[in-house]
Simulated assay, not measured.
Amino acid sequence: MSPLDVTGRNTATGPVVEVAGALDSVHAAALCQYVERLALRPGQRLVIDLSGLALCDFIGVAALLAARQHALAADADLVLAAVPTDTLRILRVTGLDQVFTIRPGIATA
């Protein structure tokens, strides 16, 4: 497995992007590039499934914010699913838990 694996699938409500490994300063660009290639439509929901995330630093959080901006620019929503405890702590400390829609479970649709 590479340090960061980003894969995706389409659902009826929009794409689900699965992130596994280290979302850090060395690898965060991979998520940004993947999300930038998504052609979102108004009303869709982009779900980023973080159930496989091993590490997330502040550059990784910036990549998640960039994904949110991409969704907002397309008039779509973004949901973070299955956020690991350490990453959730970063989001809470920075107040970003009030910016992101966060769902506890793994993205199924």
Rank of each mutant, 00 (worst) to 15 (best):
M1E: 11
S2G: 09
L4D: 02
D5K: 12
D5F: 05
G8C: 01
R9A: 02
N10Y: 06
T11R: 01
G14F: 00
P15C: 10
P15T: 05
V16C: 06
V17S: 06
V19Y: 12
A20L: 07
L23P: 01
L23T: 02
D24T: 00
D24S: 04
V26L: 14
H27L: 01
H27Q: 11
A28R: 07
A28F: 02
A28T: 00
A29N: 05
A29S: 10
C32T: 15
Q33G: 14
Y34A: 14
Y34W: 13
V35D: 12
E36I: 00
R37Y: 06
L38N: 03
L38I: 04
A39T: 08
L40C: 07
L40K: 07
P42A: 05
G43W: 02
G43A: 07
Q44R: 08
R45N: 03
L46I: 01
V47A: 12
V47M: 13
V47Q: 09
I48H: 10
D49M: 08
D49I: 09
D49K: 02
D49E: 13
L50W: 11
L50S: 06
G52A: 13
L55K: 07
C56Q: 07
C56D: 06
D57V: 00
F58I: 01
G60Q: 01
A62V: 00
A63K: 01
A63G: 05
L64W: 04
L65E: 05
L65N: 04
A66R: 15
R68G: 08
R68Y: 05
A71Q: 10
L72M: 11
L72Y: 01
L72I: 01
L72F: 01
A73Q: 14
A76Q: 03
V79L: 12
A82N: 10
V83W: 15
V83D: 12
P84L: 07
D86F: 15
D86Y: 10
T87K: 04
L88Q: 11
L88V: 00
R89L: 09
R89I: 01
R89C: 03
I90G: 11
R92S: 12
R92I: 03
R92N: 06
V93F: 12
V93R: 10
G95H: 03
L96D: 04
D97M: 05
D97L: 07
Q98I: 04
V99S: 07
V99M: 10
V99C: 08
F100P: 09
F100G: 12
I102M: 08
R103I: 08
R103P: 00
P104R: 13
P104E: 14
P104Q: 12
I106V: 15
A107M: 04
T108K: 13
